[in-house]
């Protein structure tokens, strides 16, 4: 079972990963975006960690909802409402149980990723975070929530697969063919989110 501490480890781990990788994310974003992805996510997940520290109680679901709200409030770029929606919807799907089974988390993340697709109006192949998130939640669901490592591998591969894609959404979409040859920064940060999830489970 996964308790509230697991979700705190996930978010704290993501904040550390974003802090460590902020320059790389910004560099990817300077190629096809507006060069703020690293700084935006660093600010957002730092706010998440602070909010979680100030909330010593909380269930897995309520902590994810809190984290999602912080991202929407503090990120300042499109990744804020997108990741915020992912965590908030997943948190709501988990309900108020004190512990959740991995298979429940797999289903909650699937719901969250579907909400991201709906919010952004994007689909697989559009060179967005969905290209990492969708294969990850599929891999996790296929293993009935058991294989976090498989999810992380699928997210990594999905992020790398965005390199030859042509962007169709967001600022990068204006670049058309010129976006080809660059990894999507949102897919790269999404892979970090899944990698830190696996790490919180001890699967990476």
């Amino acid at each position: 079972m996964l308790d509230a501490d697991f979700f705190r480890r996930w978010m704290t781990g993501m904040a550390a990963a974003v802090d460590r990788e902020a320059d790389r994310l910004t560099e990817l974003d300077s190629a096809i975006g507006d060069a703020d992805h690293g700084a935006n996510l660093r600010r957002g997940f730092a706010a998440v960690v602070k909010a979680l520290e100030e909330e010593p109680s909380g269930t897995p679901g309520s902590l994810l909802v809190l984290a999602g709200r912080q991202l929407i409030s503090t990120v300042g770029g499109a990744s804020g409402p997108l990741y915020g929606t992912l965590l908030r919807r997943a948190g709501k799907a988990l309900g108020d149980a004190a512990e959740v089974a991995p298979v429940q988390l797999a289903e909650a993340l699937r719901v969250g990723v579907a909400a991201v697709a709906q919010l952004g109006g994007a689909k697989a192949g559009d060179k967005t975070m969905l290209d990492a998130l969708e294969p990850a939640v599929e891999a996790l669901a296929e293993s009935l929530g058991e294989s976090f490592a498989a999810a992380a591998d699928a997210a990594d591969q999905g992020a790398l697969a965005t390199v030859p894609m042509r962007a169709r959404k967001g600022r990068a979409g204006y670049l058309g063919e010129r976006s080809v040859g660059h990894q999507d920064p949102g897919a790269a940060s999404a892979a970090l989110l899944v990698a830190t999830l696996a790490a919180a489970r001890g699967a990476r």
Partner: peptide, 14 residues
């Protein structure tokens, strides 16, 4: 555009 659209939609969704 972009995050302005998504932020308002995310706030309304709640």
């Amino acid at each position: 555009l972009g995050s302005a659209v998504l932020t308002v939609k995310a706030l309304l969704a709640e």
